[in-house]
Design a binder for these strands. Structure first.
Lengths: 215, 215
DNA sequence: CTTTAGGGCTAGGGTTGG
DNA sequence: TCCAACCCTAGCCCTAAA
C-alpha cells in the first residue's frame, strides 16, 4: 500500500524531545502546531508523535510493553459457534467480485494513496464518482455508511471542512435519483445487520447500497 | 491527572440501553435523572452517556474501516451455501440475547394468550407474546407494522387507551433485545421492497420480523 | 447557565513490514 | 523473532448552537 514506512530522522526526534520539554508529554497537537517544530515535524501526525514518544521511552526503560504483551498472550480463542455464522456470511461476501466493478473512476488512476498528497479542492461533479468508488473500494461487507465514505474520501484525496456537509447533500441527492439505495436498520445487533445486508447484496450491486447508521 | 479512564461496565451499558429505549436517544439528562438508572449511572455525566452511545453504535456497524482491511487480507470463507445460512440465521435470531438485555423481562413459560385478563392488565410479559402471536396470526406477507399489530390485539383481546403507547415501547424493547427485527426501507420502490422482504423471509422466521412503514 | 451534537484528542492495545 | 512504525477504538474534552 501507499506508505512505505517513514523512519524517524534524528532531527525529527530531537524536535519531538524539545517539544515535550516545552509543552509536556501528551500535548502532541500542541507540539505539532508550535511554529518552532511544525516545519520539522510537518510529515508527522499527533498520533505519530505519541507513538514515537512511547517507543523512545520503551526502549529506554526496557520493555514494559513487551512484558505486557507476553503477559496477555493467552486467552485468544475464537468461538466456534460464531464461526458458523461467519462462514455462512462469507459466502455472501464473496459475491462482491462478480458484482459491481463499474469502472476505475477517473480520479484514482495511478494514484497511490500517497500520504500527504491530499489536494484540498473537491469538485462537485467528482463527488458522485468518489462516493461510488468509496463504496466499492471499501468493500465493506455491503455498502458503507456516511462516516466510512467520508473517511475514505478524506483519506484518499482530500480533507476539507465542507466535505461532510457536501457529502450529506450529495448522498441525499443520489438516493433521490435512484443511484443509491439507502437502508436503515434500527436497533439491530451487528450479526443480524450483517445478515440482512448480505441478503440485499444478493440482489443489488454493492455500489448501489448506502447504509445509514442506526439511529 | 485524576481519572485513569473509567471503562464502562456491562451493567452501565445495559442501563444506558434501557434508558435509550425508555426515553429515547438524545435525552441523556433525562436518562440520568430517571431513578431507574440514576444509581447505576451515578458515576457518569450526560455527556458520558452521549459518548458511550456513540461508541456503541459505531461498533455496531462493524468497524467502518477495519472491515475493509480484514476482508482484504483474511479470506476465511469456505462455501456452504444457502442451507447453512438458513441454519445459521435461525440460531442468530436467538443468539441476539448477546445484546445484554437490560431487564430480563420474564420469559413466556406456558402463558397462553388467555382472554380473561382482557382488561387493563396487559402484563409486560404477555405483551411480548401477544405481539409475536399477532405477527404470526396476521400472516402478513412478511412481518407486520405497528398499526396492524395494534389492531389485531385490540380485536382479539382488549382495547385500552394505553395500548398503542405500550405497544410502541414494547416493540422498541423487543427490537433492542433481538426478539424482533425492525426493518425500514426508505425511498425504495415497491418492487424493490417486495424483493428485499422476500429475501428476509427466506432467512428469518416470520415472527421475528417487524416492518416499519416507510417514512 | 444548561444541554446536546459532533469534531477532535490522547492513551493504550493491537498489527505489521522489514 | 523482534521491534519501530503504524492502526484502531474507548473514553474524554472542547466548542457551537439552541
Amino acid at each position: 500500500m501507499g506508505a512505505p514506512k517513514q523512519k524517524w530522522t534524528a532531527e525529527e526526534e530531537a524536535a519531538l524531545k524539545a517539544g515535550v520539554v516545552k509543552h509536556g508529554a501528551g500535548k502532541w497537537r500542541t507540539i505539532l502546531t508550535d511554529p518552532e517544530f511544525s516545519s520539522i515535524l510537518r510529515m508527522r501526525s499527533n498520533v505519530d508523535l505519541k507513538d514515537k514518544w512511547r517507543n523512545i521511552n520503551v526502549t529506554a526503560i526496557w520493555g514494559s510493553r513487551q512484558k505486557a504483551k507476553l503477559a496477555l498472550k493467552k486467552n485468544l480463542l475464537p468461538s466456534p459457534k460464531i464461526d458458523h455464522n461467519h462462514m455462512a456470511l462469507s459466502t455472501v461476501v464473496q459475491r462482491d467480485k462478480e458484482v459491481a466493478d463499474p469502472k476505475p473512476l477517473a480520479v484514482s488512476s495511478g494514484t497511490s494513496p500517497n500520504s500527504k498528497e491530499k489536494t484540498s479542492k473537491l469538485q462537485n461533479f467528482q463527488l458522485d464518482n468518489l462516493i461510488l468508488e468509496s463504496i466499492i473500494k471499501l468493500k465493506e461487507p455491503r455498502g458503507s455508511d456516511k462516516a466510512a465514505i467520508a473517511a475514505y474520501i478524506e483519506d484518499q484525496y482530500c480533507s476539507t471542512p465542507t466535505l461532510r456537509k457536501l457529502l450529506s447533500t450529495k448522498l441525499k441527492h443520489m438516493v433521490a435519483c435512484g443511484k443509491l439505495m439507502k437502508v436503515i436498520l434500527l436497533l439491530v445487533n451487528s450479526l443480524t445487520r450483517h445478515i440482512v445486508l448480505g441478503l440485499l447484496e444478493l440482489c443489488f450491486p454493492i455500489s448501489s447500497i448506502f447504509i445509514c447508521k442506526p439511529l
